[in-house]
Amino acid sequence: MPEIDDAEDAANERATNRGFGRILVALYAIMAIGATTRSLFAIATKFDQAPLAYSLSAFAALVYIIATFTLARGDTASRRIATVSISIELIGVLVVGLLSLIDPAAFQKASVWSWFGLEYLLLPLALPILGLWWLRHTRPVEDSAAI
């Protein structure tokens, strides 16, 4: 039935977890796993060496976990949480990235967001920009009419 397929395609176009969203969620999941395990090891074994950097990494990990699950879920509440957490993520990576350039001594032990996430191929800088763009791109029709 072509009509049903069309309706399904239209619904899929608005889903945060379809199309490009599949890749985005996968990238967020990779960052979530990477940042979570690395920050847990760092906090467990050498927290006193760089409490600021490792706390920031743990916070970043939490943001990545939230973004992964909310983007994968994609309902109204999830979209709202995703928008807030990814906005915080963008501010976080910009502020920490800038601070690590201004005051490298404070960030000798790398946090995920140091140097805008260079150690992670700049993915930490790209992800929030792509994430916010994707949330806007997939926003429900009634939202776009209101804007």
């Binding site: 899929n12 379809r18 199309g19 599949r22 969620v25 996968a26 999941a29 990779i30």
Partner: peptide, 29 residues
């Protein structure tokens, strides 16, 4: 252990995606 788990997880996540993004996820993984 992560190395062992991540590829199957990624393929499972990519599996029912109808667009080219599915196989792109596999490339990323």
């Amino acid at each position: 252990v992560g190395l062992l788990i991540i590829p199957p997880l990624g393929i499972a996540w990519a599996w029912d995606e109808k667009s080219r993004s599915g196989v792109a996820v596999v490339a990323v993984v």
